[in-house]
Design a protein around this nucleic acid. Structure first.
Length: 822
RNA sequence: GCCCGGAUGGCGGAACAGGCAGACGCGAUGGUCUCAAACACCAUUGGCCGCAAGGCCGUGGGGGUUCGAUUCCCCCUCCGGGCACCA
């Protein structure tokens, strides 16, 4: 009798062997068809958490299956190693972020290796590696040259908790920081931006063709927020040289404009405010300035307090009538022109504002019969609109814009909700922005041969809220590369999302010392065939990576034909506990090591595959350990089957019986089922089918006839092949024990079912009377309608249910069902 | 408020195109093995009625279409997610 299943011994043995053999290393000249599988770049937080385990189990399954299917699979991994947690720890304990981070990377690597995940470790990347930083900085400089990176003064999001500015994408809808949860403040600062808006239209249009989850695409569409309309000028009454430019999506309603609203920050405010209104306007502007974003949004409802009259009038060019100019906090300086034409008849906000301030309301679209609501935003003919009267909304829009263009006062215009990406951070543990500030030459790039600009190690971490770089004389003071005079280094570092925006391109040739991206290697592997990660990156990372891929191509640093980084995206569900995310701070992280040390990694992997649909969330609860035990039990049964230690009758060579043929067909059906389930991300049912099959094999072996050697071998071998991507260690071990001569299970070809054996010849036909099941009969799969009905009516149980009544109608769907209606 | 998902036994979940609801696993109950336990193995396990054969009810609630609805349509409740002064 073979020894018992010892997961620790088996897993250690195979992990060692895979490492020694360099299994899953793939060279760029590999002749097999290329396939690129990638899991999202992990932040090294120490030991893996269950979300990682789930992510890397799915990724590894695909790597191993595609390898068996004959692909040369690129499966790299690296570590997104810059970021705030390491710096915050440094402030708390004084330990430098570098050794802190390196130690955590080693922990995570060990955790991933013990999971049995297969990577080409030669390609490992770390964001804080000087070589990676060098290319990061070079890319920044090329973007600067191309006008894709720029610096400007702007009202920005400041997080008091993180002590740095944030990108719009990092601020949650309630105005808090997505990292720290602090209320984000507005500050006016000089900051660095990437011109992501230059690609808004292209990124929006390209979404349609991506094989991504629809809801991720919807989220990106909403985020980009394209809206079409017109922009035009309104002269200020009595001030012939001043004009207010407004953006509107409804130029067709211009005849209904009864007032104009400026954002409180609008530059014209001070110029046009009439003397007797000055005090009131200044008080209003001051109040709004002091309000946080949250307070400003929360003031909804009290509309009379939210706006103030400037005393000025603008001329509506359509009616040539003067309309009053107001300020209101709900008009944003950062969108459109910071000024709107207000049409209360067709816009609910304008309607409310008009009512609160006693302003006139003119309907310019005829509402339907019986309309009793306020603003009407639907379709309808134009009214009260002179030469637009009678036109429907689209036609009126077009005519209004044509008129504006003909008059030379405005034009067609598309606006986006998307803002440029604010990338500078006032923190230490990130990639320095490689420029210096010279009093005479302004912003000057650090010469290429001096890259990378490295972070000095001898810095002091103090909870002052300012980057230690600002106080490091050696770092700060430098000379101007142009004139050699004294200059100061930029002390801002890059948002860590920069690092993860192109790492997938670097993986194609992480060794290149001549360019950030090896164009030929990238052309071979890109785009990523399957990207796997969490839904929480639906906007931030995935949008930035799409921008970077395009921008790199446009500055010549990436293959021009690759516009999209990720051809297929799969977003896995989250692992939660009591309904909320597991986190270190809550102290409810469940490290995988406790399972590696007991039931083994294969059991844990199998559990993650089996527990439910991969896209669904899973709440880790009281029964979870028992479910993992159940997976371990299944592997124990598999072990005993494959090592021949099932309590069973003898296995002999003999002519096949009906039972042998049935098991043979079950084996083919299993191959077909698992293959199809894998293609549809239905791992839970694939595992269930394997369990069901194993139960059948046990039953088969425990029958009086015993087993037929060829049938059992085919069943066991097939099962091991199918399980190899799911539970790679035990499958490899059992395959070797079973037949050491054929090489690793992972080097075998993925099995293919014989279609003639998948097809069933005899099936169960359900017979219903009035839609209720009354009998089940075995029939030929090819049974004719007439025979099916005859067989059904011949059933004694059916005649009993009929109780002598004549069938009114018989519905036959051979061979599955016959329904007799009386 | 708007836009997506979702709701199936005690629990996680299954049911490809309208045709056997509850696969598979967990838990529970009973049994075999054992001095005993663990492991393992076997059996039962949606609810109600019945000694049984069997019957009735049952996929969040209400209506509809259909010979037949977890599946399609309408209305409602609850849960999760996204967007929300973007002119």
């Amino acid at each position: 009798m073979a020894e018992q299943y010892d997961p620790q011994a088996v897993e250690a043995k195979w992990q060692r062997r895979w490492q020694e053999e360099g299994a899953y290393q793939v060279d760029n000249d590999d002749a097999r068809p290329p396939y690129y599988v990638l899991c999202m770049y992990p932040y090294p937080s120490g030991s893996a958490h269950q979300g990682h385990v789930r992510n890397y189990t799915f990724g590894d399954l695909l790597v191993r299956q595609r390898t068996m299917q004959g692909f040369g699979v690129l499966s790299p991994i690296g570590f997104d190693s810059f970021g705030l947690p390491a710096e915050n720890a440094a402030i708390k304990t004084g330990a430098h972020p570098r050794p802190f981070t390196d130690a955590r990377i080693e922990e995570l690597k060990s955790s991933l290796k013990r999971l049995g995940a297969s990577y080409d470790w030669r390609r490992e990347l770390r964001s804080h590696d000087p070589l990676y930083m060098r290319w990061n900085q070079l890319i920044f400089q090329r973007f600067l040259d191309a006008g894709l990176a720029y610096r400007r003064q702007a009202p920005v999001n400041w997080c008091p908790g993180c002590q740095t500015v944030l990108a719009n994408e990092q601020v949650l809808p309630d105005g808090t920081c997505e990292r720290s949860g602090d209320v984000v403040e507005k500050r006016d600062l000089e900051q660095w931006f990437f011109r992501i808006t230059a690609y808004a239209d292209e990124m929006l249009a390209a979404l349609d063709d991506l094989e991504w989850p629809e809801r991720v695409k919807v989220m990106q569409r909403n985020w980009i927020g394209r809206s079409e309309g017109a922009e035009f000028d309104l002269p200020v009454q009595g001030e012939p040289d001043k004009r207010i430019r407004v953006f509107t999506t409804r130029p067709d309603t211009s005849f209904g404009m009864t007032f104009v609203v400026l954002a409180p920050e609008h530059p014209l405010v001070a110029e046009i405010t009439a003397g007797e209104h000055r005090a009131e306007v200044e008080a209003f502007v001051e109040r709004v300035r002091n309000e946080s974003e949250i307070e400003r949004q929360a003031s909804e409802g009290e509309l009379e307090k939210r706006g103030v009259f400037t005393g000025a009038y603008a001329i509506n060019p359509f009616t040539r009538e003067p309309v009053p100019v107001f300020l209101a906090d709900y008009v944003l300086m950062t969108y459109g022109t910071g000024a709107i034409m207000a049409v209360p008849g067709q816009d609910q906000r304008d309607w409310d504002f008009a009512r609160a301030h006693g302003l006139p309301i003119i309907r310019t679209v005829q509402p339907p019969e019986g309309w009793e609501g306020g603003a009407y935003v639907g379709e309808g003919p134009a009214v009260n609109s002179a030469w637009l009267d009678g036109l429907d909304v689209p036609a009126a829009k077009a005519k209004a814009i044509d008129w504006l263009e003909a008059e030379g006062i405005g034009e067609r215009k598309v606006n986006y909700r998307l803002r440029d990406w604010l990338l500078s951070r006032q923190r230490y543990w990130g990639c320095p922005i490689p420029v210096v500030h010279c009093p005479d030459h302004g912003i000057v790039k650090v010469p290429e041969d001096q890259l990378p600009v490295l972070l000095p190690d001898d810095v002091e971490f103090r909870p002052t809220g300012e980057s230690p770089l600002r106080y490091h004389e050696g770092f700060l003071n430098t000379t101007c590369p142009v004139c050699g005079g004294p200059a100061q280094r930029e002390t801002d570092t890059m948002d860590t999302f920069v690092d993860s925006s192109w790492y997938f391109l670097r993986f194609c040739d992480p060794w290149s010392t001549v360019a950030p991206v090896n164009l030929a290697a990238a052309a071979k592997w890109m785009p990523v065939d399957q990207y796997i990660g969490g839904i929480e990156h639906a906007i931030l990372h995935l949008l930035y990576a799409r921008f970077y891929t395009r921008a790199l191509a446009d500055v010549g640093l990436a293959p021009p034909e690759i516009r999209e980084p990720f051809a297929r995206l799969f977003t896995q569900g989250m692992i939660t506990m009591d309904g909320s995310k597991m986190s270190k701070s809550k102290g409810n992280l469940i490290a995988p090591e406790r399972y590696y040390d007991t039931v083994g990694a294969d059991s844990l992997r199998l559990f993650h595959l089996f527990v439910g649909p991969p896209a669904d969330n899973f709440d880790w609860g009281e029964q979870t350990d028992q479910m993992i035990e159940g997976c371990h039990r299944f592997l124990g049964r598999l072990w005993r089957l494959a090592t021949g230690s099932v309590d069973r009758g003898s296995i002999i060579d003999r002519e096949p019986t009906a039972a042998d043929e049935d098991l043979d067909k079950d084996t083919h059906r299993l191959i077909a089922k698992v293959s199809s389930d894998f293609d549809h991300w239905s791992y839970n049912t694939a595992v269930a089918s394997c369990m069901e099959f194993l139960n059948s094999v046990y039953r088969y072996l425990q029958s009086d006839e015993g087993g037929r050697r060829a049938t059992v071998d085919f069943a066991v071998e097939s099962l091991l092949l199918l399980m190899a991507p799911m539970a790679p260690h035990i499958s490899a071990e059992l395959w070797e024990l079973h037949d050491p001569a054929r090489g690793s299970v992972h080097a075998q070809a993925w099995p293919v079912a014989d279609p003639s054996k998948v097809h069933e010849e005899r099936v169960t036909m359900v017979v219903q009377v009035n839609g209720r099941v009354r009998d089940r009969l075995e029939v030929d799969a090819t049974v004719s309608e007439g025979d099916a009905v005859a067989t059904a009516l011949a059933s004694p149980r059916v005649s009993e249910a009929l109780g002598g009544q004549q069938p009114k109608r018989v519905v036959a769907r051979p061979p599955r069902l016959v329904n007799v209606v009386v």
